Amino acid sequence: MITAKVKAVIFNETTLKSAEINVETYKGVVQLSGFVNSQAEIDTAVRLAREIKGVKSVRNGMERK
């Protein structure tokens, strides 16, 4: 359920439309991976994931293209 919510909020964020972000969740810990265009996109994705109810922490594995 958390994974779906994180994916939805990231997909609906206009600044992340070109990003290729994968989301996995285990016991409230969200792992973000994939490729984005800038550090700002990484920061935005992490912030959005942290705002989802039930997320205990966010691990960032995203890289800039």
Rank of each mutant, 00 (worst) to 15 (best):
M1E: 10
I2Y: 02
I2K: 07
T3N: 10
A4Q: 14
A4R: 12
K5R: 14
K5Y: 07
V6G: 02
K7R: 14
K7C: 09
K7H: 12
A8W: 14
A8V: 14
A8Q: 15
V9Y: 02
I10Y: 06
F11N: 13
F11S: 14
E13C: 02
T14P: 15
T14K: 15
T15K: 09
T15W: 00
L16T: 05
L16A: 04
K17C: 02
K17D: 10
K17R: 11
S18M: 12
S18V: 09
S18P: 05
A19K: 03
E20Q: 14
E20D: 15
I21D: 10
I21M: 11
N22A: 12
V23P: 07
V23I: 08
V23N: 04
V23K: 06
V23W: 06
V23F: 06
E24H: 09
E24N: 13
E24Y: 08
T25H: 01
Y26A: 05
Y26M: 03
K27P: 05
G28I: 10
G28S: 10
V29F: 03
V30Q: 09
Q31N: 13
Q31Y: 09
L32C: 01
L32D: 03
L32T: 03
S33D: 08
G34Q: 04
G34A: 05
G34D: 05
F35S: 15
F35W: 08
F35C: 08
V36P: 00
N37L: 13
N37C: 04
S38Y: 05
S38V: 07
S38L: 04
S38F: 07
Q39G: 09
Q39L: 08
A40E: 09
A40P: 00
I42G: 02
I42P: 01
I42S: 00
I42H: 01
D43N: 14
T44M: 02
A45G: 02
A45C: 07
V46G: 10
R47F: 11
L48Q: 01
L48N: 01
A49R: 00
A49E: 04
A49N: 06
A49M: 05
A49Q: 04
A49H: 04
R50P: 08
E51A: 15
E51N: 15
I52M: 10
I52A: 11
V55S: 06
V55H: 05
K56N: 14
K56Q: 11
S57E: 12
V58G: 01
V58K: 02
V58Y: 00
N60K: 00
G61A: 08
G61M: 05
M62W: 09
M62R: 09
M62A: 09
E63R: 11
E63V: 09
E63A: 10
R64T: 15
R64E: 14
R64K: 14
R64S: 12
K65F: 07
